[in-house]
Amino acid sequence: MAAAGTSMEYRRLGKTGLKVSALSYGAWTTFKTQAALPEAKELIKAALDAGVNFFDNAEVYAGGEAETLMGQAFKELGTKRSDLVLSTKIFWGGPGPNDRGLSRKHIIEGTKAALSRLQTDYVDLLFCHRPDPDTPIEETVRAMAHCVDSGLAMYWGTSEWSATQILEAKHIADRLGVSPPVMEQPEYNLFHRDKVEVEFAPLYEERTGLGLTVWSPLASGILTGKYGGGAAPEGSRLALAAHKEKLETRRADIEAAARLAPLASELGCSMAQLALAWTLANPRVSTAITGASQVAQVRDNMGALGVVPRLTPEVLARVEAAVKGDKGGADKA
């Protein structure tokens, strides 16, 4: 069930001047695994047609092949580079001792390799994909700032860092007088909330603020309701070998998602649209990264923009009740 179409909303990335589409598209688990070049082009075109300008990737996705597919797709589609906000994430670049982590060597070499695969001179957003306990944060800050200063990236940030680590990186950057991290990419959905809503609260008002490019807003597809029957549909994310174990370990989440179905029906939207709209209702979220493997899913996801205005305090309270399993919840008339 698709809600009426709504034009794309563009939000500032934290306190920077960069505008990113509220809904974006990422290549994780999809490109190569579920989509070769013809399918990748169709998915990207559907996202572009909906007004998406932010496309997320990482050196580790499909061992770099996700970046290769994305770069070739944009080339064959003839997309104007300045119309795009592209990202990559650096940490897991290969099997060698210096092919992973956040040393100056790997950050600079890994970024240049990613740019080659993406067929672009720069990425707009460059992320440290995870914290690296083996590398001093000052070394990482200096290397990421170098990438910005040398034109390899426009902005840099982190992914799945703690608030303490981000603050340390900011303070080091301030002391050195170099570009600080301005965005973070955390997981954020109805089942995974504390980092964004509690831990990061002190960061949003820092000098540069903190833009959030959140991943897994549909909780690996669980919030679409597709797993309610107890099995993973063919072609779905949890049907992939790397994710099959989640079907049992996340049974409680699957049951909670099913309780949202009556509310989605009442609002005249799909469950995916309701879950995405809930994520976008948080003003701290700059963009929610979607990862559809079918064009129809891309189009349905974009309908979430039209659902956001319907999320009144009463509706949001019913969402909370349904997820927690409170009696009544989403079934309340």
Results as ranks from 00 to 15, higher is better:
Leu23Asp: 08
Trp278Leu: 01
Ala73Arg: 02
Leu18Lys: 12
Phe91Pro: 09
Glu42Ile: 07
Ala113Asn: 15
Lys332Asn: 14
Ser24Cys: 08
Thr224Ser: 08
Ile90Ser: 00
Ala322Asp: 06
Ala114Leu: 00
Met271Lys: 07
Gly26Met: 03
Gln185Pro: 00
Glu76His: 06
Ser236Lys: 09
Gly306Met: 01
Gly225Met: 04
Ser162His: 08
Arg237Lys: 13
Asp124Leu: 06
Glu314Asp: 15
Leu18Tyr: 04
Arg318Trp: 13
Phe127Ile: 05
Gly303Leu: 03
Asp132Asn: 12
Phe200Ile: 03
Gly64Val: 02
Thr279Leu: 04
Ala275Ile: 05
Val298Gly: 10
Thr312Gln: 07
Asp83Gln: 14
Gly93His: 02
Gln34Asp: 12
Ala113Gln: 15
Gly51Ala: 01
Tyr204Asp: 05
Asp253Gln: 13
Gly63Asp: 12
Ser116Gln: 15
Leu176Asn: 03
Ser236Cys: 09
Ala113Tyr: 10
Val198Ile: 13
Thr16Ile: 09
Val60Cys: 12
Glu314Met: 05
Glu67Leu: 03
Glu266Arg: 15
Phe55Val: 03
Leu223Phe: 02
Leu203Met: 13
Pro233Gly: 14
Lys170Leu: 14
Ile107Leu: 01
Pro309Lys: 00
Ala257Gly: 08
Glu42Ala: 15
Asp121Lys: 08
Leu276Glu: 11
Tyr227Met: 04
Ala231Arg: 15
Phe200Thr: 06
Met70Trp: 01
Tyr25Thr: 03
Ser7Gln: 15
Gly101Gln: 09
Leu126Phe: 11
Gly303Trp: 00
Asp134Ile: 06
Ala258Leu: 14
Tyr61Val: 06
Ala145Asp: 01
Glu168Cys: 07
Val307Ser: 03
Phe55Trp: 07
Leu260His: 12
Leu176Trp: 02
Arg130Ala: 07
Leu18Pro: 00
Cys269Ile: 01
Met183Ser: 07
Ala241Asn: 15
Val85Lys: 08
Cys128Met: 10
Leu23Lys: 10
Pro262Met: 01
Ser220Met: 11
Leu218Thr: 04
Glu9Pro: 14
Val196Ser: 09
Asn57Thr: 05
Leu247His: 11
Leu238His: 07
Ser162Asn: 11
Gly221Arg: 03
Ser103Phe: 02
Thr88Ser: 05
Leu276Trp: 04
Gly229Leu: 08
Tyr122Phe: 09
Gly328Trp: 15
Leu37Val: 02
Val295Phe: 09
Gln297Asp: 15
Leu240Asn: 14
Lys75Pro: 00
Pro309Met: 00
Val323Pro: 06
Ser21Thr: 04
Leu126Gln: 11
Lys19Ile: 03
Asn57His: 09
Glu234Tyr: 11
Gly51Arg: 05
Glu76Tyr: 06
Arg310Gly: 07
Ala256Asn: 09
Tyr122Asp: 04
Pro283Met: 13
Thr287Asp: 03
Pro181Ala: 13
Leu267Lys: 02
Leu118Tyr: 00
Phe91Asp: 09
Ser159Thr: 06
Ala163His: 08
Ala163Asn: 13
